[in-house]
Design a protein around this nucleic acid. Structure first.
Length: 510
RNA sequence: GCGCCCGUAGUUCAAUGGAUAGAACGUCAGGUUGCGGACCUGAAGGUUAGAGGUUCGACUCCUCUCGGGCGCACCA
């Protein structure tokens, strides 16, 4: 990639001049008239930027300039023109990187409890997790999407669910829950205990969630890990024994506690007075199971209400000897314009309601635009209104526009296009946007700032719409037409790949 | 009280410690005898909550204050 080449060129120049080895940081130029890339290395090492700039020469660079202490790099026209062919050649693979080195990464997300349908808060983690997994795959990792099901018969919430199913519970019955219970009524008659009933009900609710995520959210999990299975397979007991041999377990008030003082955390109960394991113990077992599967990275995406749990699970990972990276991301609260979302209150708006209202593409885009750790407000009415005039459609329209032009071209061959004919500023501007995709993927795979994607897609679409205004594709000149045909085909590829990363469709007509 | 997150344009949100803090929507003013006007151009709109500090340079890092959110269970 460009950045790497420029880094090397600059580092070599510095080595020649000053005989030092330095780490050069190269970024996109942020200001106008400052070229395509820039580095602040001269300021960092307190040397003369002009002196360094003069030393750098390459065919990919038209010129190198020092300005305000920065060194600015201007890509050469030939190099840019060539990139169009590169994109066409790589097609669906354009943007793929090798930085992941085929290492296994686990992305666990949603993992909502079986208390009802997914709400708008779950949507955030859902789309974020799915998109992040897409990006990691594109960056060369092997990403596994996982949903953890809290379905154990031993689980207090499941038991409460069972009481509810048997008509003895005191929790609020959502219409959804009522429906499921009615559906299962004949089975509850045969059930022996509340935990059996709860388990049965839980399985059904998870079944609903599963088909909802697959069919409506278009998210395919690779694995649904069941808490109850962890019990069945003896994983809970095994990890408990491990902690005990480490002498980290002690008894107090007839309960068994985990000593976390070594990690500067409050101790936690593992086994209650009544003999039942806590969620904390099963979660340790679950993470042990994650670790044992050999992931280089483990990414957990949790809701804001689990934030207190983060440092504890990180401590646990250390305790269990995990060597990879454990990243726990907290998705901050999603608020509707009126009131906040809470499962305990009755009239929550479900994720399904939202998607029915604005459509999946719009929903995905609106969620993804915001950084995960800012609280976001979701104004349903506004989203609905915006569904007419909407950033998603803006991007999709660019794709549809290209398809519309393509329909008018009888001979779609582009292999012999003379790309040197692409010389208009709007053409260069468009190409410069196209070649950003690999950089976007690289950065996002590193820092998980997924909101970069919708932002980029908008900028890409803008570059295309401007090109469309300035340059007629269906030109009288046959060779010019061919060159521009190649350019719009490349644009189509990049738009499609970008939208695909977000899980958004690329329509041919709108 | 303690811990984590946040405070940026009228609104919703961006901005690897870098150059003149950017988009979208909204508002106002314009544009095609053109491949789809779901488009394009321009304008107005900011003391980045406030005060200190760190440094060549701070929306970004540190400290304090104010304001909002979320945690702090033998719930998950």
């Amino acid at each position: 990639m460009m950045k790497e080449k420029i880094k090397k060129l600059t580092a070599r120049a510095i080595k020649n001049l000053y005989k030092k080895e330095v780490e050069v940081e190269v970024s996109r130029s942020s200001a106008k008239d400052c070229g395509d890339y820039a580095t602040n290395v001269a300021m960092a090492i307190k040397e003369n930027p002009q002196e360094i700039a003069k030393q750098i020469k390459s065919t990919i660079l038209e010129r190198v300039e020092a300005k305000n202490g920065f060194i600015n790099f201007f890509l050469s026209k030939e190099h840019l023109q060539k990139q169009v062919r590169e994109i066409l050649k790589r097609d669906k693979k354009f943007g793929e990187l090798k930085i992941g080195k085929h290492q296994k990464v686990l992305v666990e997300f949603i993992s909502a409890n079986p208390t009802g349908p997914l709400h708008v808060g779950n949507g955030r983690g859902a789309f974020f997790g799915d998109c992040l997994a897409n990006i990691l795959e594109k960056a060369g990792y092997r990403a596994l999407r996982e949903y953890y099901i809290n379905d154990a018969k031993n689980n207090t919430q499941i038991q409460e669910l069972g009481r509810t199913a048997l008509g003895q519970g005191k929790s609020y019955l959502t219409p959804h829950l009522k429906r499921v219970i009615r559906r299962l009524a004949p089975y509850f008659k045969k059930v022996k205990s509340e935990s059996e009933a709860g388990y049965l009900l839980g399985q059904n609710i998870f079944g609903d969630i599963r088909s909802f995520t697959e069919e409506k959210l278009k998210i395919k999990f690779d694995l649904w890990v069941s808490e109850q299975n962890l019990y069945r397979q003896g994983k809970i007991k095994k990890v408990y024994d491990f902690l005990e041999t480490k002498k980290l377990v002690y008894k107090k008030d007839n309960a068994l506690w985990l000593d976390l003082s070594g990690f500067n955390q409050k101790d936690e109960v593992l086994v209650r007075r009544n003999g039942q394991s806590t969620y904390f113990l099963t979660d340790i077992a679950y993470h042990d199971y994650k670790i044992k599967r050999g992931f280089k990275k483990i990414i957990n995406i949790w809701g804001a209400d689990h934030q207190g749990h983060v440092s504890k699970i990180k401590a646990i990972a250390k305790m269990l000897g995990y060597q990879g990276d454990l990243d726990i991301l907290i998705s901050q609260v999603v608020r509707l314009k009126r009131g906040k979302i809470s499962k305990r209150k009755g009239n929550i708006v479900t994720l399904e309601d939202l998607i029915d209202e604005v459509g999946l593409d719009v929903a995905r885009f609106l969620y993804l635009t915001k950084s995960l750790d800012t609280q976001m407000e979701f104004d349903l009415e506004l989203a609905k209104k915006q569904s007419e005039k909407n950033p998603v459609y803006y991007v999709q329209y660019a794709h549809a526009r290209i398809c519309s032009i393509l329909r008018k071209i009888s001979d779609p061959r582009f292999q012999d296009s003379n790309l040197k004919l692409l010389v208009h500023p709007s053409e260069f501007n468009l190409i410069k946007q196209l070649i950003r995709l690999p950089e976007i993927i690289e950065e996002t795979a590193k820092d998980y700032q997924v909101q970069r994607l919708p932002q980029y897609s908008t900028e890409l679409a803008t570059a295309f719409h401007r090109f469309y205004r300035d340059c007629k594709v269906l030109a009288k000149d046959k060779s010019l037409l061919k060159a521009r045909l190649a350019l719009i085909l490349a644009t189509k590829i990049v738009l499609k790949n970008t939208l695909a990363l977000m899980g958004i469709s690329a329509p041919e007509r709108m």
